[in-house]
Every structure is written in C-alpha cells, then in structure tokens.
C-alpha cells in the first residue's frame, strides 16, 4: 500500500492514526515537529503527508510551504489534519497548497476516503 508520513505532536492521536492506517496496510512514519517532518520527507519519500498545523519548532504551514517550493517534494499530496477549523484556516491551508483539509475531531471513514482520493490523484 502507501507510505504515509504522519506529522503530529499529540501521542494519542498518532497512535490512533498508526493503528487504523496500519490495519489498511499502509506504512506509517511519525514526525513530532516540522523540522523532523522535512527531514523524514527527504529520507523516506512518502506517498502522502498527514500534517498537523500547530506544532513545536516549525508550524504546519511553514512545512507545507517548504514542501511545495521544492520541486522534488511539491507533488506529494498533503492533507492537513488540524483542530483549527475556521473558514480562514481552511482557506489558508488550501492556498498554501494542501490537497485537502480535515478538522479535528475527525472520523476515520471520512479520513480514509480522503486519503484514498489523494493517493489516487498522485498516481
């Protein structure tokens, strides 16, 4: 299946994502801050990035901007998974180049459907 990089600083959310996405056969890697995320993108070349916005060291939007500026990573679809759910946050995320934006709390059926769609579009 796919290599998915989860960028999330809340341990329990990460565990949930890892558990559920593993059951679908995806390979999950974790970054707990933006800097780690960029380093991991370089080393593992994920098929998709699930990105939190509010993170220590480097925020999600900054990570997204850097990914989209780099020709080597700009085609990796990024889905933002954030507790910031106001209209302006969602618009900002999509304007920064996110493929999709999901707000927390979330439901797995919806998340999985959006992941599948993002992965299909990248093929």
């Amino acid at each position: 299946m796919a290599r998915i990089l989860v960028t999330e600083d809340e341990p329990y959310i990460y565990k949930m994502l890892e558990f559920r996405l593993n059951t679908l056969g995806h390979e999950i890697s974790l970054a707990t801050n933006g800097e780690q995320a960029l380093a991991l993108v370089d080393s593992i070349r994920p098929d998709l990035v699930l990105l939190d916005v509010m993170m220590p060291v480097m925020g999600g939007f900054q990570v997204l901007r850097k990914l989209k500026e780099d020709d080597g990573t700009s085609s990796i679809p990024v889905i933002i998974l954030s507790a910031k759910g106001q209209e302006k946050d969602i618009v900002a995320g999509l304007e920064h180049g996110a493929f999709d934006y999901i707000t927390k709390p979330f439901s797995f059926p919806e998340l999985i459907a959006r992941i599948d769609r993002a992965l299909a579009s990248a093929k």
């Binding site: 329990y12 949930m16 709390p105 979330f106 439901s107 797995f108 059926p109 919806e110």
Partner: peptide
C-alpha cells in the same frame, strides 16, 4: 475518553 475526544461521526 481520550480516544472519544478526537473522534466524530460514526466513530463517535
């Protein structure tokens, strides 16, 4: 409770 807090929809 920790798990439920993060979920909505059918999962909730």
């Amino acid at each position: 409770l920790q798990q439920s807090e993060q979920l909505k929809g059918i999962d909730k």
